[in-house]
Write a protein that binds this DNA or RNA. Structure first.
Lengths: 152, 152
DNA sequence: TATTGTTATACTCTATAACTATA
DNA sequence: TATAGTTATAGAGTATAACAATA
């Protein structure tokens, strides 16, 4: 975790670049996310995987990887972590024995709900200097950037 | 580099989180940055270091690290890369022999200007679906997020 | 004692390629 | 042949700790 930021005027050309500001903001938010989750210590990507599993029970690993924008191989450790915590299980799928359906457990669902609360608290705190309108605008503009990916 | 994105409606709770959208947008922009620079293959962080060195000639490594929000130790490889390319040199500072002043070379300055052009082109292209107003608003809101770091 | 640059080291995140078992 | 999950491996990016030279 970094500590001393730079005065926003010193970075010259960089200050006008969306990419630079996006990265700096991303680091701040991610650091605060991890700090807010503290002991639970669930990383952003594990939280994302748990969220998608809870919201899409019986999703396959490949589908989850596609949703998250990571490779199948990279998802294995994430699912392992969630399975080790007892938050989901890899269930066999009748009709195709290659596939694992990811099924959230009772513990997984309630851990998710508790963690989602922490995450929402972290965002409410971190973005408390912004109005509801500003937060929604930021969200909308970020989604607009994300939509660029779909033209590929 | 990931390939298949997810439909923005499928992610449930995540879609309302600024952090999640920030990360997804960041990945898209960073991937496009690297693709746009292509053969030059200057990574975002090396570009950032070059930019700050050109805009703050004679900056020390420690000061540059602080500006970038990384550790001193992590900056060594970045400065090495720029020195290997002949884009800057570590100059001795009279009066304090511990310190290295980073001085951009002629080649470094012109490489920077060329690369800055590529970066601006990449952003213009990637964000072409947004109005000038929207881009400025996004920039302003990201800076507002960044300002949260200064309260620590 | 404190600071600058450096090295050694380790950890996280991610990708590619190859394997296995199925289909 | 193709696909799902897995393993092995490697490469960024970053952090911590310790060291030498210097202050």
């Amino acid at each position: 975790m970094a500590k001393k930021p730079l005065q926003s005027t010193e970075a010259g050309d960089l200050e006008d670049l969306i990419g630079y500001n996006l990265k700096r903001a991303y680091v701040i938010v991610q650091d605060d996310f991890r700090q807010a989750l503290g002991d639970d210590n669930m990383s952003p990507r594990v939280f994302t995987a748990l969220s998608l599993t809870v919201n899409h029970p019986n999703i396959t690993q490949s589908a989850l990887a596609r949703m998250m924008g990571v490779e199948r191989s990279g998802l294995v450790a994430i699912v392992d972590a969630l399975e080790d915590e007892g938050y989901l299980r890899r269930a066999p799928v009748p009709g195709d024995r290659r596939v694992h359906a990811l099924v959230p457990t009772k513990a997984g669902t309630s851990a998710y709900e508790k963690t989602l609360g922490l995450v929402k608290g972290h965002e409410a705190r971190l973005f408390s200097c912004m109005t509801a309108n500003e937060k929604q605008t930021l969200l909308d503009l970020l989604k607009k950037v994300r939509r660029q990916e779909e033209r590929a």
